[in-house]
Each structure stands twice: as C-alpha cells, then as structure tokens.
C-alpha cells in the first residue's frame, strides 16, 4: 500500500447566513443528492452533517454505483459533496439537535450553538449500526467500523457478527490484516449479495460460524472471548478473539424527526409518500431513514430519493411564493 496524502476532505470556510430555503440534515448520498438538485433549482441550501459521506465512510470499496466501476466509499462521499457545492450549496460540519416549526418557517439549532431558519427541511439522517445488546459490548476491542480499525488487528483473531452485506464487507476488509476472521451468523443462510459471499468463501482465513447467537463478549478490559449458543442444539461455545466487529444491521436515525412530530412506521423509519413528503408540510425525507424504495438501502436508491425530495421541495416553495 502506498502512502497517500489526500485533500479530499478540504472544506471551504465561510460565514453562513441565518436564513435558508432548504436545510438538509445529513451529508450522505441522499443528503448531497438532494442538495445538488436544490442547488440547481437555485434554492439557498445548507447541509448540516456530522461527517461528510455518512455511512459511505465505512465502505472500503463501492462497486455498485452506476457509471463508477470502483471507488472507495469516503471518496465517493466527497465527490457527492463537491458536486453539490459547485451549485452553491453550503456545508456545516455540526450536529442538528433541535428543529421547530413556527408557521411556515423552521428553526434549526446545532450542537455547536448555531441557529438557522429555513422554509424546508429534508431529513437525510441515514442510519447507524445496531448494537448487539449483550454483556461485554463496552469492552475495548468492539468495533463498528472495519474500514477505520481493521489495520489495528494485524495478525489477530477477530469475529464479525452478522450475515448481511456489511458483515461480509467487514470480514473481507479484516481478512487482509487479521490472522483469522470468524464470521458469526445467527442463520444458516446469508442475506448478503452472492458476489460477496463467494469472495468470502474463497478466502482461506475467513471461517463461517453459522446458526449461532452471541450471548456474551468476555474479557478483562479488552475482548478475549466471544460466547455463542447454537440455535438448534443449544450447545455453548467460546471462541478466542481479540476483536469483535458488529454488523447486525442498521437502525434509522430518527430522533430529531420524531421530536418534530414526523410520523414514523413500525420500524422507526420516516413515513414518506412517493414524493418523499412526510406528514408535516415543508418536511421531506430521503435515504436510509425513510420507508421508501422498498427499504432497499443502496447508494443509488438514496441518491434517487434525495433528488425526488429536492424536486418536491422546490415545487412546495414555488407554491408558497
């Protein structure tokens, strides 16, 4: 691996106005696609996000975004941002902590103490990794980002828990560094894309441990063992591992939307109609956080939802003028 010095995270600094047409909360594919379209509609658009790229930051390689054969997730995230900013969109790296509606205007407050007003809100808050909810999950050596932490497990034995695309991605990233990777899954079959499963099967240091649930992670201060129970025989086994990577699915980040009174579905996702409208006038949503796209959470579906949300935000603003 050649050392690189990258400028891809460079953010232009400027004093931000208080008033906006559209504030987009979240800077992943949905957020910046919405931002791009809003920018092209000449709407004054601000993206408030904790990180550029959202969960793209945890994808070492993206191979399923049409037109781009192969790119790292973080890099694609920065491309989305740069593209939107070419159309006048502004970015604030911060966390939106409160949104209130007063007549036709929203007031958004951030963790760092800023307050903005906007005519439209687009929630593109994405999702975050679900935790295991077992004893020992607070030990050193539990990770939710293989992309960030895999190199720290060079020559070690680790477990990845999960059976979806994220788990397989994590196992494949880790296999480049770790001596052995156990892929622990509670079912006998995987829901990950066959292309990932095939790649993992060919990898001699990935071992599948199937039909097992995690009971506990043991260790003094750092991870030493993972305790598993077979779902059929109820036999309990312990595997010696130095790290556990949790990839048991995602949960939508809806706290803020909920606070505003946005309606959620039974899975805690923002309910949207085909135009990405929520139950609150002037509030739209896009990406992983919504109930849209048959819940097929992909970069391409998030980007599409972002564009649809922006289009309908534009129409909403025109109507109100």
């Amino acid at each position: 691996m050649k050392i690189s010095f990258s400028l891809k995270n460079f953010t232009k600094k400027e004093v931000l106005n208080e008033n906006w047409d559209v504030i987009i909360i979240g800077g992943g594919p949905a957020g910046y696609s919405a931002a791009l379209y809003c920018g092209r509609y000449k709407l004054r658009t601000l993206v408030i996000t904790k990180y550029i790229g959202g969960l793209l930051n945890e994808a070492s390689i993206v191979e399923d975004y049409p037109g781009i054969k192969r790119i790292s997730g973080p890099e694609l995230g920065r491309l989305f941002k740069d593209h939107a900013e070419e159309w006048g969109v502004k970015t604030l790296i911060d966390e939106a902590v409160d949104v209130r509606k007063d007549m036709d205007l929203f007031t958004i407050s951030t963790r760092n103490g800023y307050t903005f007003k906007s005519r439209v809100i687009i929630f593109a808050t994405g999702s975050k990794r679900r935790t295991l909810g077992v004893p020992g999950e607070n030990l050193n050596g539990i990770s939710y980002c293989a992309e960030c932490d895999a190199p720290l497990y060079s020559g070690k034995v680790v477990a990845v828990v999960g059976g979806g695309n994220t788990a397989f991605h994590d196992a494949l990233v880790l296999s480049k560094y770790a001596k052995k990777v156990y892929l622990v899954h509670r079912r006998k079959k995987f829901k990950a894309d066959p292309v990932l499963v095939d790649e993992a099967k060919l990898n001699s240091n990935i071992e599948f441990v199937l039909n097992k649930i995690v009971l506990e992670i043991k260790g003094q201060s750092t991870v030493e063992k993972i305790v598993l129970k077979d779902r059929d025989t109820e036999d309990i086994i312990e595997l010696d591992v130095q790290g556990v990577f949790v990839a048991v699915g995602l949960e939508p980040s809806t706290e803020l939307a909920k606070k505003l009174g946005v309606e959620l579905d039974d899975d805690n996702r923002i309910k949207v109609d085909p135009c990405m409208k929520t139950n609150i006038e002037g509030v739209f949503a896009a990406g992983d956080v919504t109930s849209g796209s048959c819940r097929f959470m992909q970069i391409v579906t998030s980007a599409a939802e972002g564009a649809i949300a922006a289009y309908n935000a534009f129409r909403y603003i025109l109507r109100k003028m």
Partner: peptide, 10 residues
C-alpha cells in the same frame, strides 16, 4: 488515528 480513518481528521 489511522490514515484510513475518515472520521479521525475531525
């Protein structure tokens, strides 16, 4: 930090 970690630079 690790150089690969996009969050770390913040």
């Amino acid at each position: 930090v690790t150089p690969e970690c996009p969050y770390c630079t913040h």
